[in-house]
Structure formats: C-alpha cells, structure tokens
Amino acid sequence: MKLKLKIWKQKNQTAEGKFHDYNVEADEHMSFLEMLDVLNEGLLENQQEPVAFDHDCREGICGTCSLVINGRPHGPMQGTTACQLHMRHFKDGDTITIEPWRANAFPIVKDLVTDRSAFDRIIQSGGFVSVNTGQAMDGNAIPIEKDVAGEAFEAATCIGCGACVAACPNGSAMLFTSAKINHLDLLPQGKVESSKRVVKMVEKMDEEGFGNCSNVGACHVECPKEIKLENIARMNRKYFAAKLSAK
C-alpha cells in the first residue's frame, strides 16, 4: 500500500517545528513502527535525516512509544499502543498525520520524542511504600481479598506512556496519578501512607504544570490499558478527605 505521511519535525526543544510530507510503501502485515522503520531506511539510503521517534519493547508494555496518529494518541484502535497497531487498519492511498504528545509538562526532545520525566517526579513525591529491603514479613501474613488485589492490579497495569495527558485538552495527568495512588491505596501495605501520599502526589502534579480535570474523559478513551475513570473520582475523594483531616 502507498501512503502519504505528514510528520512533525522539530530539531530540539526550543526550535520551531513544522510538518513534513513523506511517501512510503507499506505492507499490511507491518506494525505502525515497522512502517516508520521502512520510511527511515529509505531516508538513510538517500543520506537524509531519519524521523526520530521513541520506542523499545514493541509489545505494548514499556510505555515508550508515544505517537499521535491522525489526531489520536496511539492511533485509532481501542486499547492498543502505537507499537501494537498494524497497517492492516489503514488503506492504500491514506494520508496519515503523525505528531508527538503535546503537553506543557512534556517538552519535545526532537521530532516525535518528548521528555516525560515529570511522571518520574510525581512518583518520587510519594508513589511508593516506604519499606526497606529485608524488613518484610511473610508474603502470606496478610490475606488480601482476591477482588481487591485484582482491582489494585488493574490500576497497576498503567504503562506510564502519557497518552492520557496528550489526549486531555487541559493536559491533565489525573488518570496516571490516580492509577498509581489507587494501586497502592487499595492494598493494606500501601494504606499506611495513604493520606500523605495523595496530598503530595496531587500537589506535585500541579507543580509540574499538568492541567486540571474538567471531566472530559478523553484520557480513558485513549488510554491503551483502559485505565478506568473511577480512579480519578476515588483519588479526588481521598484528596479532599486528607486535606480536611489535616486541618
């Protein structure tokens, strides 16, 4: 299949960026990133600069790939990262627009690559259980209800990709942050630090320049792991309760 690509090119964080047009010949069995590999291979053959994009596992689990495809973070398929999207979902002759995540808190490194270290800093502010190695009791000492463990697991499947932020008109990181908070808060091991954690992480999120939540819900729609919106509501309840009891 023959495709036209409109790809965002930007030399570095401060440079101006703009769209460039490319043509590429793809095969329906290729993954989307393999299609970009083919494009780059062709550019290199002509001693031209390839398009920079981030990726690693190509299995939908590391959270590195981060492309806005035709206006949608990770492209058109529900519950699918860009690396797991295959070209059979496109048609011969299609024009595809490819952009980086766009959010204040994620500056562009180059072309389609962004800096998402703000997420790490949110975790640093409290996204952990304060337990040193060697202090743990037996793993079966505290039984945890299967469904509760399951719910914690669901929240913990977030891959930290940032599509939720890119999807949100306000650039909010609520879905990511609430998923982490609820993962830990649902488990007895994480409950101990619950109030402190939620306050610190929410405040850090604001400080990093992520926007507010105005209940648009786009984050959940574009999230490749289908992290639930209820996480946000639960986090908000926790946050206000913690703030109230602190006063």
């Binding site: 337990v131 743990a136 039984p143 299967k146 091991q189």
Partner: peptide, 22 residues
C-alpha cells in the same frame, strides 16, 4: 523466598486465591 515477601511488602499485586493468599 525473601524476594516474594519483599515484593508483597512493596505493593506488588500478585495473583491471589479466593482465600486471599498468594
């Protein structure tokens, strides 16, 4: 065996049985 204990203490959500054990 210590690894499993440590991971549980960190909040790793391992699969569990109906009785709540690992």
């Amino acid at each position: 065996t210590d690894i499993i204990d440590q991971c549980v203490a960190q909040g790793v959500p391992f699969a569990r049985e109906y009785g709540g054990l690992l």
